[in-house]
């Protein structure tokens, strides 16, 4: 059984095929290939867009989808994750889509299920479907992304989106530059800087991240305003440069990106959301057809 816990669970060839599927789905060419398939969603952490995106993807392909209300059901203290996995599996789903606030939970579940586990985000570890839709969006704009430079900006240390994108985009030949204050910069071999002005003239794309205040156990920056004074993507910064702008959402307006830049046509945030549904259809097809 194949799972999708991290982007490196799929080979480059598998990802290329998956992106091609997403492309044909986006042209409206799909059938109910998941009829008679049961998919469970298990979201331990709140999510509106990712959950809906998966639900739309599953329904378009004809799958049955059941949302487990985690707050009211299992996984209280006293049960191991092995117990949780085996209980879910006993319901006979073909796939389980999991989001959890703790890194590693989908991986541990996948060690004990027959159903495919699809990681919809776990702590600061991985968010593979987001990185795949980001790659798709970049390819849509650039064609071949190899040799292009992208700056990832923000709370990289606490970001599963950054973690998955660093793995995936570098594998597809992009140069990833990390831009963050020391507070948010992981130990890394990648090129990194604290100053946006150092890289703004050489990058082809910018990925701004949401500051993960909820994942900080103690104060890590004086305030969002203080952070934004150096790292907000503004029209003054971008100027008339040929740079596209991505963000996994939800955007913290005027902290991550200014109102004006969000309206700019170089901003691909809504395109990312549309592409997300097609990518998730392709992922479901790959894992359970």
């Amino acid at each position: 059984m194949q799972h999708l816990i991290r982007t490196d669970d799929f080979t480059k060839a598998e990802i290329e095929a998956l992106l091609a599927d997403a492309k044909s789905f986006s042209d409206g060419r799909f059938e109910r290939i998941l009829q008679d398939k049961l998919i469970i969603t298990l979201f331990f952490e709140n999510s509106t867009r990712t959950k809906s995106s998966f639900e739309i993807a599953a329904k378009r392909l004809g799958a049955e989808i059941v949302h487990l209300d985690v707050a009211k059901s299992s996984t209280k203290k006293g049960e191991t994750l092995v117990d949780t996995a085996m209980n879910l599996d006993a319901m006979g789903p073909h796939a389980i889509i999991v989001r959890h606030q703790n890194a590693g939970v989908p991986k541990i579940l996948s060690n004990h299920t027959k159903a495919a586990i699809l990681n919809a985000g776990d702590g600061a570890h991985a968010h593979p479907s987001q990185a795949l839709l980001d790659l798709y969006t970049l390819q849509e704009h650039f064609g071949d992304v190899s040799g292009k430079k992208i700056a990832i900006i923000g709370d990289i240390k606490n970001s599963r989106v950054a973690n998955s994108n660093i793995e995936l985009l570098t594998r597809f030949g992009m140069e990833v530059i990390l831009v963050a204050p020391p507070h948010f910069l992981p130990k890394t071999d990648l090129r990194s800087t604290h100053y946006l002005r150092e890289i703004i003239d050489e990058v082809d794309a910018i990925m701004s991240l949401r500051t993960q205040t909820e994942r900080h156990s103690s104060q890590s920056y004086a305030s969002l305003k203080d952070y934004a004074s150096d790292f907000c993507i503004t029209e003054e910064l971008i100027g008339d440069r040929d740079i596209i702008l991505l963000h996994p959402g939800p955007v913290h307006r005027n902290i991550d990106i200014t109102d004006a830049m969000l309206e700019d046509e170089r901003c691909k945030v809504l395109q990312q959301v549309s592409n997300g549904v097609n990518i998730r259809m392709a992922i479901l097809k790959k894992l359970i057809v």
Partner: peptide
Amino acid sequence: DVSSRLGLA
């Protein structure tokens, strides 16, 4: 770098 990769604090 391992904790970063695993997303663990």
